[in-house]
């Protein structure tokens, strides 16, 4: 029952947040800047496209939202959202990751008119092909938890970079621990 009450509170907070934030003409924060020459994660605005009319379709069942990702506008790092880290070959959310995700969820609720993109990454162990799937599983695990925290799954998409974009180029556990991560972007519809 206690749990039920908490969810009601979350929903109520969400409704209020939507009413407060999603007003016409509300401008997105311009707090994050990304080097557009960066070919990799969180960078680049090569997408072009005004994004007009490229809406978000309702998710069917447990699938990803039917977003035409090519029509998304600029994608940039959601700098206020913390990065979460994973154990080796695992997509289980550690307690520290859950805490970070709770904070991230509140930030995302304040930005109801953007698509959230969760990036999953791996360390260099495991095969290149498997790591693409593992990175996706990490991004999906983070997405699932964000949905449970009240961020609409209709606006959370995932991307896996596998082992292709390490945060730390080293070849030891110190580097690997930093590379097994999920980071959070916002994308213009």
């Amino acid at each position: 029952m206690k749990r039920h009450a908490r969810w009601t509170l979350v929903l109520a907070t969400l409704c209020v947040a939507v009413l407060l934030v999603a007003t016409p003409g509300c401008k997105r924060g311009k707090d994050a800047t990304i080097d557009p020459s960066m070919a990799g994660p969180g960078g680049g605005d090569a997408g072009g496209g005004s994004g007009a009319g490229s809406g978000v379709e309702a998710t069917t069942g447990t699938g990803l939202p039917g977003v035409d990702v090519e029509k998304l506008g600029k994608i940039e790092r959601l700098k206020t959202a913390g990065t979460i880290y994973f154990d080796f070959d695992s997509s289980a959310l550690r307690p520290d990751a859950r805490e970070t995700l709770k904070q991230n969820a509140e930030i995302m609720k304040q930005l109801p008119d953007v698509i959230i993109q969760v990036e999953g990454h791996c360390d260099e162990r495991g095969t290149q092909e498997y790591n693409l799937a593992l990175g996706e599983r990490r991004a999906l695990a983070a997405r699932d938890f964000l949905v449970k925290l009240g961020v609409s799954g209709d606006r959370i998409i995932t991307i896996s970079y596998g082992e292709e974009f390490p945060a730390d180029p080293g070849h030891d556990e110190a580097a690997w621990g930093k590379n097994r991560r999920a980071v959070f972007n916002k994308a213009e519809k």
């Binding site: 069942g61 092909e129 999906l140 998409i157 896996s160």
Partner: peptide, 29 residues
């Protein structure tokens, strides 16, 4: 293939007319 999520791991069928691929649009690879 340009679905939302993963589009990876292509494998040609021997006839060259089809491919097995991996998508995560179902929120799972």
């Amino acid at each position: 293939s340009k679905s939302v999520g993963l589009n990876v791991a292509p494998a040609w069928a021997p006839d060259g007319k089809r491919l097995a691929i991996v998508l995560s649009k179902d929120a799972n690879a």
